[in-house]
């Protein structure tokens, strides 16, 4: 049996020289070409790091993105970028404003994915922000209803996902961290994701975090993806207990390190999280990763947390005889609404 594949949720911290260059670029003192060269250099550094420690499914680390929703809004027609708002503590982001019908006018992430994939033989995930989250994290001054806003965005993100798949991405993650905020809108999340994943020949993942999982479960299983990536360590793996009563019918992305803590978890702690998951799910449906993107950590902290994950998986695989052959990155029978996967 193969399983317990290691991966990341998406973002890694930008090295200080890139952060500085982004600020200088915003001030007009660094050219587009100079910034792009630094972004490619940082991407390659993260790809080499992931390969060197033995991560199974890689990410490009999103060296070219700021906020995950604002990045897509900047690239889609119909948005303008508003002023800063606070996210938490002393963290801020520019919140987009939909001022006209939202449309995709050009590929957004495909070139960055192609570049990252060209650096490695291991699979690199295509990384998209989901339509519900882009809508929820934007102001809307155009649409008569949230549903119309979300579904227009779904059509735009679907086009981007299809381009990624056509370029060769076998794993495509559509992040929907806002999905667990409003239980009454989970059907809208699922409706929009059905548009995004319609005809998509790739293993489709969604990432959800920092919400009321207890209330969102099991309704979240209706989201038509192959895998749901969940922040579990931050919430003490509470949701695993629910899986005993109502089985988790998809593959899971199991967050085993907290991305908002400077503390580096011990390998034993991560092993305990993985072992707890194995009590309710088979290894071939578990992907092990951090709770969320690691971009808020320092480079050293992010690297240390990734090493913990890889070492923890190595120990559990060795102890249980689980192989590390990579999954094929194709749609599963479980993508359809609520359909159980074979265990």
């Amino acid at each position: 049996m193969n399983g317990l594949w290691t991966t990341s949720v998406g973002s890694f911290p930008k090295p200080p020289e890139l952060l500085k260059a982004r600020a200088e670029h915003a001030a007009g003192r660094v050219s587009d070409e100079e910034l792009a060269a630094l972004e490619r250099q940082a991407t390659e550094t993260w790809i080499r790091f992931q390969e060197s420690i033995g991560v199974d499914i890689l990410v490009d680390g999103e060296m070219y993105r700021g906020d995950m929703a604002t990045y897509f809004a900047e690239e889609l027609a119909g948005f303008e970028i508003g002023g800063l708002v606070r996210s938490y503590g002393n963290r801020y982001y520019r919140k987009p404003i939909a001022v006209a019908a939202v449309r995709r006018t050009h590929p957004i992430t495909v070139d960055a994915w192609r570049f990252a994939q060209s650096l490695t033989d291991r699979p690199v995930k295509g990384m998209l922000t989901g339509p519900y989250t882009i809508a929820d994290w934007s102001f809307d001054e155009h649409y008569p209803s949230r549903r119309e806003f979300v579904l227009d965005l779904a059509r735009a993100i679907h086009a981007e996902a299809m381009y990624l798949a056509a370029a060769g991405a076998g794993f495509i993650q559509v992040d929907e961290p806002a999905a667990s905020a409003r239980m009454d809108e989970l059907p809208l999340v699922a409706e929009a994701m059905a548009i995004v994943t319609d005809g998509l020949q790739a293993h489709a993942i969604t990432h959800i975090c920092y919400g009321d999982f207890a209330r969102a479960y099991p309704a979240m299983l209706d989201i038509p993806v192959d895998q749901i990536d969940l922040e579990m360590s931050n919430s003490g793996y509470d949701l695993l207990e629910r899986f005993r009563a109502i089985p988790f019918t998809k593959a899971i992305g199991l967050g085993v390190v907290d991305v908002h803590s400077h503390r580096i978890e011990t390998v034993d702690e991560a092993v305990r999280g993985i072992e707890a998951a194995l009590e309710v799910m088979p290894a071939e449906r578990i992907f092990v990763d951090p709770d969320c993107g690691l971009k808020t950590r320092t480079v050293e902290e992010a690297e240390a947390k990734m090493r913990v994950i890889v070492e923890a998986v190595r120990r559990v695989r060795a102890a249980r005889g689980i192989g590390d052959a990579l999954p094929d990155g194709r749609p599963t029978a479980g993508r359809a609404q609520g359909a159980p996967l074979a265990s």
């Binding site: 606070r86 938490y88 994290w137 806002a178 667990s180 905020a181 931050n234 803590s261």
Partner: peptide, 10 residues
């Protein structure tokens, strides 16, 4: 740890 404040993105 961090939790979402009601249905906001804060």
């Amino acid at each position: 740890g961090l939790l979402r404040y009601f249905d906001t993105n804060t």
